[in-house]
């Protein structure tokens, strides 16, 4: 196994469609929440930005978990676990880069100061990496496609709703972190440092669990990519492991 890949290895036929569906959904979301023809009086009362940010976090969370699953299934035979982790972290950053024009259009409607872009990207990258590590672990659990699907959405929705509704999970709230990055809001009892530490901790937990599975089961699980690369895999088997988007 090698950690060095040619540049075109960043483009695979699973993460690209997932990323592209994500981009299209964000575009639709932008179209729905954009103040198309607002008078000043309406603009004062509108709150489209909150809806955009909330749903964007959900979509991006789903994409990040999917990227983690793809990583576990496609690259297990080609990269070392550490190489896969690096690959995953960079892939989340590339996804953010691709969605940047849409974020720029969002900022142009007056909701976001351009100077806050780096902080917003940083927060999203951390959030995405944490969920991607979770997805990596999900991809390594050996569950069926349906099981992975359920686990993925339960994880993302649970995190988003739980961190809003449950006081002891509030420190993890990506929405609060994004509010902090976009508007500088810092509610009492929440601190960006705690959120960052918690996210890094959760991400490390997911990555650690995924890596541990390599020790238990080797560099692959006997199904999926490694066999495919050697021309021995079956199409039906691969379909079973195709991550849902």
């Amino acid at each position: 196994m090698s950690d060095r890949l040619p540049w075109d290895y960043w483009f695979d036929h699973r993460s690209w469609p997932a990323t592209f569906i994500f981009l299209i959904l964000v575009f639709v979301l932008w179209g729905l929440t954009y103040p198309w023809d607002y008078r000043v009086g309406e603009f004062l009362r509108s709150s489209g930005e909150a809806l955009f940010l909330g749903l964007f976090l959900f979509l991006f969370g789903v994409l990040a978990v999917t990227l983690g699953q793809v990583e576990a299934q496609l690259w297990a035979g080609r990269l070392s676990p550490r190489g896969q982790l690096v690959h995953l972290v960079v892939r989340v950053a590339v996804s953010l880069l691709l969605v940047l024009p849409l974020g720029w259009a969002f900022a142009a409607s007056g909701f976001l100061e351009p100077g806050r872009f780096p902080l917003v990207l940083g927060i999203l990258w951390l959030y995405g990496t944490m969920l991607a590590c979770f997805g990596w672990w999900v991809g390594r659990t050996g569950l069926s496609e349906l099981g992975q699907f359920n686990l993925k959405y339960a994880g993302v929705i649970g995190l988003l709703l739980g961190s809003v509704g449950l006081p002891w999970l509030r420190g993890l709230s990506p929405y609060t972190a994004l509010e902090y990055a976009v508007w500088g809001l810092r509610p009492a009892g929440w601190s960006p440092e705690v959120a960052v530490v918690a996210w890094v901790g959760l991400g490390a937990l997911g990555a650690g669990a995924a890596m541990a599975s390599y020790r238990r089961r080797g560099d692959g699980n006997g199904r999926g990519r490694r066999a495919d690369l050697q021309g021995q895999g079956s199409e039906g088997e691969e379909e079973r492991w195709r991550p849902s988007t």
């Binding site: 575009f27 932008w30 179209g31 954009y34 103040p35 198309w36 023809d37 607002y38 008078r39 000043v40 009086g41 603009f43 004062l44 024009p101 849409l102 259009a105 142009a108 409607s109 007056g110």
Partner: peptide
Amino acid sequence: FQKKRVLLPGALTLGGILL
């Protein structure tokens, strides 16, 4: 002023560029 349109990038122009 409250009846004035907010000066925002045209949604159609912006949507076209993004598409």
